[in-house]
Design a protein around this nucleic acid. Structure first.
Lengths: 320, 320
DNA sequence: TTGTAAGCGTTATCAG
DNA sequence: CTGATAACGCTTACAA
């Protein structure tokens, strides 16, 4: 009995011949281990949780897809753990462990940088992986060079001839938005364009916040000729707001977003944006998590590549 | 020990005083039952699966949210079970039960009407609930009067003065699409407008299929003045295709969709559509499933209400 | 109405 | 390297 257990769990100390014999019999009998019994005896749940707060739905869906793939491959189970914000975060996280006891969790922004969550996990020594954390030091998971991506995107805009470029920031709590904002400023500096605080507004990743941000920027006495929104949903809102003011994109205003969610292609005009391999990021983060679950200090911070997509929503500014 | 078990499982035959005493102690000790042990001993997994094939992402996400809510309330766990199409369906469904052994499943279109899946479930006597099945007889779950909804939507179009109304159908396998198509024909009949097969094309719910469907319809010698697409994604594609041909919506063409996904509000012009309470439908279906899991013949087919949303994408046809 | 004893199907311990 | 035996924390069957 124990020998079979050893074989099925890839444990050492089994003669090769015995291992094969077991494998063969397992095949013949179509034996499938019972998950509950395994969990009970092994003190593990074979569950990983995707912990999230309030991400954009598309982002969540993609991450989830990638994680699901990794989980299936490792005979793990994925559960979804939405947690409330503010005061409720602590309770929800606690409830998650009391009820389901996942062997590890994956954190996505903005929760990747939430101290309540992080300290709970560290205190209880729960293995966890982060996606796009603000501070990647000592973390495992996956990240992208967001600043570099924005730098390239902005360089494209500047090359088209834009000098007054507006920016709609993402939520403050969202680490990635700091990186994107940093890229915005750095690009201006490199191009020798003075930073103008009026051209930057605070958004919250929603379509609506993109609209209101655009309205603020377009109301300026000297409005921007291009707007870089920190995600696609907001960029879509910008296009909408522009349309309602009788401005055509890209003729009167260039717009770009970030993420390459489906809306980027489906909106008219199609959005210039940066593609994140979101699903792949979910998969990779989960893989690192598995490493760490298996061995305490294993797992790394993986870097993934971005892709620039110049589409219809950007063109040179109108001559005045 | 057994008494505590009885209390925690709401079983009968416990004196009220004893029940209270147990409850109080459970509180004090912050006792949480161990899920694995429960499953092992009780021969149940406390898992329900959302089984799906290839639905639109938004739809899936909404259903999932509603199911999650119901599961949390009943201390059940939700797992996602994407299954491949064609030959792989049977294997995937089998794998689902061998690996996770869910106590029941929820089916969403187009899988609600898949014979391979249905016969597996019936044969193995697995409790299941359906969302929007083509044939609701003997099924439990939730459905909406899709035909009636389309009838109202079409009546609106006709009242605006449209006589040549195109329709882009959803996937054949998708039960709901039959209902929507039926509504389309019925509305024409009621208004005394002759049915013209040229005005109907086959789509597959994707943005791209909406575009190509629109192109077919707009290429007709006598093109429609309005197009009803069987879902919002396709309607968005129609708007896009129209734009690329230099036609403005709604000035030159009225467009309406179905579902009220976020894109319906985010696109320009905002889409006239029918709102389905998708998330609520996920929740309700799961509740019916729980009923049936508990008692073999329990559970009903719940009906939910739709809402018509007339927005910017429809207006009277241009005078010639 | 309450409690006892025997599993449920694995993994962990430890002796061969 | 292999295998007997005891957990793991509950539920079911059956007494009391």
């Amino acid at each position: 009995m124990k020998t079979v257990s050893r074989v099925l769990n890839n444990e050492p100390n089994v003669r090769e011949e015995t291992r094969n014999r077991v494998m063969r019999t397992v095949e013949q009998l179509k034996y499938k281990p019972n998950l509950s019994a395994r969990s009970l005896a092994g003190q593990r749940s074979y569950i990983v949780a995707l912990v999230y707060n309030n991400p954009s739905r598309n982002y969540l869906m993609e991450i989830q897809g990638g994680m699901l793939e990794a989980c299936r491959a490792h005979h793990y189970n994925l559960i979804l753990a939405p947690v409330g914000s503010g005061k409720r975060t602590a309770d929800d996280i606690k409830g998650l462990f009391e009820n389901f006891g996942p062997d590890g969790v994956v954190l996505i922004p903005p929760l990747t940088d939430d101290n309540v969550v992080l300290s709970y996990l560290e205190e209880h020594e729960v293995p966890f992986a982060c996606i796009a954390p603000r501070n990647p030091r000592d973390r495992i998971g996956v990240m992208m060079e967001e600043t570099a991506a924005v730098l390239e995107l902005m360089a494209g805009l500047i090359e088209l001839g834009h000098r007054r470029i507006g920016h709609i920031k993402g939520p403050r709590a969202h680490g990635a938005c700091q990186w994107r904002y940093a890229g915005y400023r750095e690009a201006l500096r490199k191009a020798g364009i003075a930073y103008d605080a009026d051209l930057v507004t605070q958004g919250e990743f929603s379509f609506e916040s993109g609209m209101s941000g655009a309205n603020v920027l377009l109301d300026l006495t000297q409005p921007p000729t291009a707007i870089f929104a920190a995600n696609d949903d907001m960029a879509a809102g910008v296009i909408r707001a522009a349309g309602e003011r009788g401005l055509a994109v890209p003729r009167d205003l260039s717009v770009c977003g970030f993420d390459d969610t489906p809306i980027a292609r489906h909106i008219y005009p199609a959005l210039t944006t940066v593609r994140q391999p979101t699903s792949e990021m979910g998969r990779l983060a989960t893989l690192e998590l598995f490493d760490r679950i298996r061995t305490p200090d294993a797992g790394r911070m993986v870097h993934v590549e971005h892709t620039l997509l110049f589409r219809e929503s950007t063109r040179p500014p109108k001559k005045r």
